[in-house]
Write a protein that binds this DNA or RNA. Structure first.
Lengths: 332, 332
DNA sequence: CTGAAAGCGCTAACAA
DNA sequence: TTGTTAGCGCTTTCAG
């Protein structure tokens, strides 16, 4: 089947290509009968407008680039879903890029993004690289970042304030006299951990105390579990904070499986900041915050479309999203 | 910053645009000093070739479309990762589409895919729609489907043979006299379930028996859990098969939390076909098959690139992937 | 209401 | 080795 173009349709319908262009773009100046005639030709030939050629002529691609970290966590999927769902509404295509560690990698992604002339980019990445964003900005590409508060003429953001979330949580525990609070981290989400730490530090400093209770664990579950098993044999805490569900599960299992099991929540409480369906499947069920991943993706896309709109009336470029706490069995 | 084009570079370097084109495409006929001159102009102006224009001229986009189900499961992420990783190697971009339920949806996706003139499409979807694939084929778009065995001039496939996997598993259980085997399903993965069923049926028929032991559960974990709790109060099985980890967890928890807890694996064994990291975090740990999700994505992409290569020597268009069984605590 | 023609930015013969 | 020119398929003034 020969690639059929607007010319073929024009010939078939016996009109000029300009007219065909008008009907496929829904121009209302076309007389009804010629519109019908053209439509029929389109059907008959199975013509589909070439989006590439349109993009070239129009100087826009109606596609936006999405950069996510390579690690495939459940919430990444949710963000993508939310984003794509609203992208569909606005007829945008999404080209997906995954950022591995390493700056070279990120540079390459930015490079291909610029070449592909996307209309905008949404970036969700735990390692935020200001420099890379700058080069995008230099090329006039509107950006929305998910997960970090920031703001600029061409940059918007959708985020959760983990610092104050953790601050509030820790604060209320400290009010009740719980001071032995540990933070588990595995270096996979440095940005978020930094925020959590700042919340913790602030709560401690408020009371003239210094915070330094990290439990640094390996990146993989199995070794984390083993590490924690040894750790808890020597040391326990009143409250353990984790970011991801798998970390909380490592805590739970290693605490339970001590020679002298640690009773959760009686002896030690556990909160997993980033709630997931697996938290409710664990035993004891793990308390956590329901972060609106899907909505963050959706709102990020919404924001990009606003930035892209011609007549865009001014709008808030920093959008804070809120999470709700779901207490379960791992806390008193 | 004005959009700068190949003309600007040509003027700056004082050569023709053809020469510029040659250096950006690495043609080796360019004299070294003019190449340097052009490179300098490119650097100076910050020129980036317009991939859209290149696409138009070359009649190819170096992007491939990926269709995945909307549901965000862990393995979907793995497939995407694998696919993107090899896409990077071959300089392909990935535009991601999620297929919600409903045929209209799928038709729209196919429509935009055809318009966007991607070089190929990889489709991973539990609901396979032959018709949609046909329209792609009519437009000469090479396809690789992940998860279903199929084959055609323009279609390749990468799959796991769940039927024979389940057949072997069930067969060995039946050899040991275990006949009371139940299959849990929630209608979210009809294609795979159909395959599993065919394996089960075959194993039963071999012994002149008929298989009809389904446990049809709701789609959400919470209601599945409640459903199964009632179910297991009345009825138990020697072996329960599930597809996804969350289903196995629902089985585990509801069995454990009976008035008279069901001992797993002593009284009832559980196998989750699709192994995931959460299976190892559950207690008891759940036995399952390690399906090579990442590799399936990677191989699918490899296959597409082969189909796209000019001088492609013939290759196997049906690629079976194998999984390995990891016995854990949920089986004897 | 419709057509002619000039781009959009780049590639690839074909000449020079 | 380099330049000239004709597309790639579509949009959009500008005339008619």
């Amino acid at each position: 089947m020969k690639r059929i173009t607007i010319y073929d349709v024009a010939k078939e319908a016996d009109v000029s290509l300009a007219t065909v262009s008008r009907v496929i773009n829904g121009s209302d100046v076309v007389r009804e009968d010629t519109r019908v005639k053209v439509q029929e030709a389109i059907e008959k030939l199975g013509y589909k407008p070439n989006a590439i050629a349109q993009g070239l002529a129009l100087q826009k691609t109606t596609t936006i680039a999405l950069i996510v970290p390579e690690a495939s966590f459940f919430y990444t999927g949710q963000i993508i879903n939310g984003l794509i769902d609203v992208a569909k509404i606005y007829k945008y295509n999404i080209v997906l890029h995954t950022a591995t560690e390493g700056i070279t990698e990120m540079n390459e992604i930015i490079e291909t993004i610029i070449k592909s002339r996307v209309d905008g980019v949404v970036i969700f990445n735990d390692k935020l690289c200001k420099d890379e964003l700058n080069t995008l900005t230099r090329y006039q590409v509107p950006i929305v970042v998910i997960g970090n508060k920031m703001h600029d003429d061409m940059i918007g953001s959708v985020y959760v304030d983990y610092a104050s979330l953790v601050y509030d949580l820790v604060n209320s525990y400290m009010d009740r006299g719980v001071h032995d609070i540990a933070l588990v981290e595995d270096r996979k989400n440095p940005q978020v951990i930094a925020q959590m730490l700042s919340g913790l530090t602030k709560a401690f400093e408020k009371r003239g105390m210094k915070y330094d209770n990290f439990i640094e664990i390996p990146k993989e579950y199995r070794s984390s579990y083993l590490y924690l098993k040894e750790y808890f044999a020597k040391k326990r805490h009143q409250l353990v904070l984790t970011y991801r569900d798998s970390q909380a599960l490592a805590v739970l299992n290693s605490a339970k499986e001590q020679a002298q099991p640690i009773a959760i929540p009686q002896e030690m409480e556990v909160v997993c900041i980033l709630d997931s369906k697996y938290n409710a499947m664990a035993r004891p069920q793990i308390s956590g915050y329901k972060i609106p991943d899907y909505d963050m993706g959706a709102m990020a896309m919404r924001m990009i479309t606003k930035m892209l709109a011609e007549n865009s009336e001014p709008f808030e470029k920093e959008l804070e999203m809120f999470s709700i706490y779901t207490p379960r069995q791992s806390t008193k």
